[in-house]
């Protein structure tokens, strides 16, 4: 054992996703080579993020102000809301720069095997937005998995009473992949989602 303090730091870093014991040790030793001010800055940043960042009460995006920058941006199309499973999905769509509507983060997917049901997701909040907002289109952008499809199916049932257009992002082949190597499920989804060219 190097020292109790270092072992504690390694154990703490090891709790992060994707950080194994070796990587945690390397990071801890790297920090020891930094100036005290640099380490303090990192620690302050982490505490700052933890204390200031919260969830937007409307769309459940991460934000420091209420509502979040997406919900408060009046230049965005307020008639369209994209339903996504996780905040990471929102960041991915924002990186495209193509979508200019609003979002709604469910914070998970319906997964019977994990005991996650509709009541565990932010679905009632979405329905509240539909009742009290100006939304005309709901884009279902749930992940292309069994759980994502189940979530989309459940949502489409919930959305039936509303006068909104419900669409789903395309399923199928990733750009740059080899068509001959695609499996039958992926190919059939791609075929089902074909469009006029």
């Amino acid at each position: 054992m190097a020292s109790e303090a270092i072992e504690k730091l390694i154990a703490a870093l090891n709790r992060l996703p994707g950080i194994g014991a070796k990587t945690a040790r390397r990071l801890a030793l790297e920090m020891l080579t930094w100036d005290t001010d640099e380490v303090r800055e990192l620690a302050d940043l982490m505490v700052d993020v933890k204390t200031r960042v919260r969830r937007c009460s409307i769309c459940f995006n991460l934000t420091e102000v209420e509502p979040c920058s997406v919900c408060s941006d009046m230049r965005r199309d307020r008639s369209s809301v994209m339903v996504i499973d996780f905040i990471g999905d929102l960041l991915a769509f924002e990186r495209t720069g193509l979508y200019r509507g609003l979002y709604h983060v469910l914070d998970g997917r319906i997964s019977p095997l994990d005991g996650i049901g509709p009541e565990d997701l932010n679905i009632s909040q979405l329905l509240h937005r539909l009742r009290h907002g100006e939304i005309r289109e709901v884009i279902l952008a749930n992940g292309p998995t069994v759980e994502g499809d189940a979530t989309a199916q459940y949502l489409s049932q919930c959305l039936t009473p509303f006068e909104v257009s419900v669409t789903q992002i395309a399923r199928g082949l990733p750009v740059g992949s080899d068509l001959a190597l695609a499996d039958q499920v992926t190919l059939s989804r791609a075929l089902e989602g074909r469009r006029e060219y």
Binding site: P112, L113, V146, A150, Y154, Q157, D183, Q184, S188
Partner: peptide
């Protein structure tokens, strides 16, 4: 991994998916 049968009718229906999940569990 190569799909022999994807059981799509199970996966594309909310209630059937729940039944299939119960069987797998």
């Amino acid at each position: 991994g190569d799909i022999a049968h994807a059981f799509e009718p199970v996966k594309q229906h909310y209630g059937r998916m729940a039944a299939g999940s119960a069987i797998c569990e």
